[in-house]
Amino acid sequence: MRSAADLRGALARGLVALSGIAGGIALWWAVVTVFDVAPYVVPPPGDVWRSLTGDFGLLMDNLWPTAQEALLGFAIGNVLAIAIAIVFVHSRTVERSFFPVAVFVQTLPLVAVAPVLVLMLGNGMAPKVVIAALMTLFPTLVNMVRGFNAISPQTVELFRVMSASKADLFWRARTYAALPFLFTALKIASTSAVIGAIVAEWIGADEGLGYLIINATYNFQTPLLYSTMIVASLFALLLFALIGIVERLVVTWEDDG
């Protein structure tokens, strides 16, 4: 009985989103035509569509390495962040001394770090994975520290009355309290990992979406540039949506807002 209403709601939301996209494309086409924008700056939608279909093989061949780097970086960055957050929650001293380090790493400009990493790790996948991981690490760390601490003082007292151990409190309260925060963090991380991998490929790569973007720009293949952007964002969107689905399956006790 609920699922029928759910389905109708999802359909309605899908239609709204689709009409938004259609409207955007129409506007794009109108602006390009009315103002006579040079096609090497903003190509008309038709050209981009032809590139998307015509260069499909090329796009997919280059999506694959970027996807691998992003996913690997995503996994490493998030696992590290969660591990560090667990250590922080158990030791205020460690948190106080290492949190500033994390903040410092976060403030390093990505475009400055990337070349250094390429120098250190070579031209292969490694520096891209590291940058994607770095991009995801900080937001997840901050969210998880908050999440693990998102239990009320009364919950702590409840566990004390039951003479529960610190481990009991962690595994039966803190982890659950942190789950909604984890999914928020993973959603942020899904997009930043893809951005991280692409930007890292700009510095030095012979394949990947970032490489394709640089190449297309220098060769004035603007439609290819646009279709690469679209593929990159569709990939990030797919990750984002997958995480949303897993969240709905896992966090069943919260009201869906």
């Binding site: 009320s152 009364q154 919950t155 007292e157 409840l158 566990f159 039951m162 003479s163 529960a164 151990s165 009991d168 039966r172 309260a173 659950y176 789950l179 006790w253 919260e254």
Partner: peptide, 23 residues
Amino acid sequence: FQHAELLPWRTAIDNVKLPLQVG
């Protein structure tokens, strides 16, 4: 406690079982 303090991620029966699972 004044405000029940149930764990929101546990069903009623699992909340009642909690004290048997800790300590």
